[in-house]
Design a protein around this nucleic acid. Structure first.
Lengths: 189, 189
DNA sequence: GGAAAATCTTAATGTAGATTAAGAAAGCAG
DNA sequence: CTGCTTTCTTAATCTACATTAAGATTTTCC
């Protein structure tokens, strides 16, 4: 049931069978159809999601009504609106399934208990947040240094399978430009 | 000598005196004049910096030769090029003192030892990276949703002291536009 | 204190990507 | 299979900010 997460944790630190039983008692699992919402703007984000299978995206609606995707999470990634999750504040973000998705869920009220009962999980999550922060540093550098076309070209080279996997309008919004402009870029190839 | 960091750690988790002695043996301290480089592009970033006093910035030079500031760190913040630091890869970033600065330094070769000898530091760094990732999520949302003028106005309202503290060209580069445009925005007030 | 360097300001001109509008193609549901 | 919805494409026009250029002001250093 939670093997995907246990396997992932065991890549970074050791979680024995007793600990897995304890952790399992603090998790739940859920499945979502494509385009289903795990969380909606205006609500408080009470859950942190680990993707077992599928793809989630974090996006908000800007002042002009356009969707701006700020993050994707595919298998073995975590995603939530972290500020809302940690501080139980109202969220501006949506979390939506970009395709049929299975997740393992950590609820906010159990999040701190995980660390109390399983101190080893501190290392796992330190490494996860380290990785997420790394990814953000790189992301911001690309946003600042590359044209829209370069961002598409480089992303396509680095993650060709992912580009095939999600709709183009989601990809465009993640890379920071309009779907119309993405069509224009692609028409040049 | 390292009290600023011990105090900071003790805000999040408990570090007793024995542990402080152990941690101290793995740290060093340094001071930099305004505009001094702690790290330069092309080198490998071998240090992670905790700001005791002052302000550091992380920036790169883009293809047109302009500086793009991606992060600042003031008192009680950590800063490094995390990918270069963790993987010992060549860095595109500079870390520079935006003003006279004192730091506490963790060197890469001691980084993992800190966690081995002081498991309690896992929690501290998990919380630090959590906070850094939160800040990045918020940062990316602002870059996507606000005009340049809005970014300046909101940043000025949120951090008026900081805006006075750093040169305007650094602020403009952090907020994602040219110093000329910042002058134009300010001239409207 | 004076000269040089760094920073800030101003304005005209240029441009990467957005906006607007609408048709074509693909996907979905009954 | 058909009608409806969603996604993708195309192109003209617009715009937020960049670029270029240079002068004014402030800061730094000897």
């Amino acid at each position: 049931m939670y093997n995907a997460l246990f396997d992932h944790v065991n890549r970074f630190t050791n979680l024995d069978e007793d600990e897995q039983v304890i952790l399992a008692s603090m998790l739940k699992t859920a499945s979502y159809k494509k385009k289903a919402f795990l969380h909606e703007a205006g609500a408080i984000c009470r859950e942190n999601y680990f993707v077992v299978k599928g793809c989630l995206r974090l996006y908000f609606i800007d002042i002009k009504g356009a969707e701006q995707t700020t993050q994707f999470a595919i298998e073995n990634w975590w995603i939530s609106d972290l500020t809302s999750f940690l501080f139980q504040s109202q969220s501006d973000f949506y979390i939506q399934a970009a395709e049929e998705t299975e997740v393992i869920v950590v609820e906010r009220h159990l999040y701190d208990h995980i660390f109390e009962q399983l101190p080893g999980m501190e290392k796992y999550f330190r490494l996860i947040y380290q990785k997420l922060h790394q990814a953000s540093q790189i992301r911001i550098k690309y946003l600042y240094s590359q044209t829209a076309e370069e961002r598409y070209t480089n992303f396509n080279s680095a993650f060709p399978a992912f580009v095939q996997r999600v709709p183009q309008y989601m990809l465009a919004s993640y890379l920071g430009f309009t779907p119309e402009f993405l069509s224009k870029i692609r028409a040049k190839k």
